[in-house]
Simulated scan of single mutants.
Amino acid sequence: MEDQPHQAPPPTPPPQPQGPQPIKMAPDQEKNNNINTRHMSRPNNTPRGIIICTAIILILSGITIFTLWFIYHPKNPSFTIVGAAVYALILTPSPLSSISTSMQFNILIKNPNKRVSIFYDRLTTFISYHDQTITPPFELPPVFQEKQGTVALSPVIGGGNPVPVSAEALNGLSLDVEGYGVMQLGVVVVGKLRWKIGLFTTGKKSVHVRCDVAVSVKNGSYGQVPLLPSPNSCHVNV
């Protein structure tokens, strides 16, 4: 038997160059990376959203307040002087013209509104003669007035404390008292009020009231004095 020729094995192909192999990540790490990528790519609209929501709330609040004010637009309260008393009246011409007096006035306040209540804050009252103040201001207590309600106040104003006045005012009041037995006075009330409409209460508004009255002081009579027929009107400005 003849020997078979020996065949060499086929040559081994050279190794092929390989690119970078993908790195495999654990499932939890891959999930976190995806979440971070989404957060980074999403624009931050939070400040803009807050501004838009705030603007909408302010606009709706303004519309609501305007609607309530339009529907329940309140009328001014009315003031009336229904009684008076003079407890002291001293006119001092020198060395400094001054008036010392103590008077009491009964004041009725009526609320004409059917749907609106009123808070009166920091009210003060004083008496004037020919537009000159002849008493120190007297502070009234806070008052809450129900719808269509009536409040009565009876402050004693002056307290006998002297108030400097002009010589003209002093001579005029002396002539009225001694010559005619009548004093033409102004009862002034100033302060702040708030309207209450349902659950909504407005901000404070200035109120100024002036009531012109004529009182009889004949024969030096003191105590309760009659109110003489006169316009006796009270002008209310809010």
Rank of each mutant, 00 (worst) to 15 (best):
V165A: 03
H235F: 06
S128G: 10
Q18P: 11
N36P: 09
L228E: 02
K147H: 02
A55W: 07
F138R: 09
I59V: 14
E168V: 11
T12M: 11
M183T: 03
G220D: 01
L58H: 08
L123F: 03
P17M: 02
S216L: 09
G62I: 08
T12Y: 06
Y222P: 02
L228R: 01
K110Q: 13
Q18T: 13
Q7H: 14
I109M: 05
V188D: 10
S216F: 06
N161R: 15
K204H: 07
P10F: 02
D3A: 14
A88M: 15
K24C: 11
S102M: 08
P27S: 12
I65M: 10
V82G: 05
S230M: 02
W69K: 09
L175P: 00
N232A: 11
Q29V: 11
H208F: 11
I107P: 03
V182M: 10
F79C: 02
E168Y: 11
N161T: 15
P141G: 07
G203Q: 04
Q4D: 14
R122V: 09
N171M: 11
K205S: 13
C211Q: 02
P14T: 10
I56W: 08
I90G: 05
R42N: 14
E30K: 12
S233N: 08
V86S: 09
K147W: 00
L170R: 04
G186Q: 07
A8I: 08
L227E: 06
L140F: 01
G159D: 09
I127D: 05
K147G: 03
L58T: 13
N237H: 15
P226R: 07
P229S: 03
K24N: 13
P10Q: 02
D176G: 01
G223T: 08
G223P: 00
R122K: 12
I90S: 13
S154I: 12
F138T: 15
V209I: 07
Q29I: 11
Y129A: 10
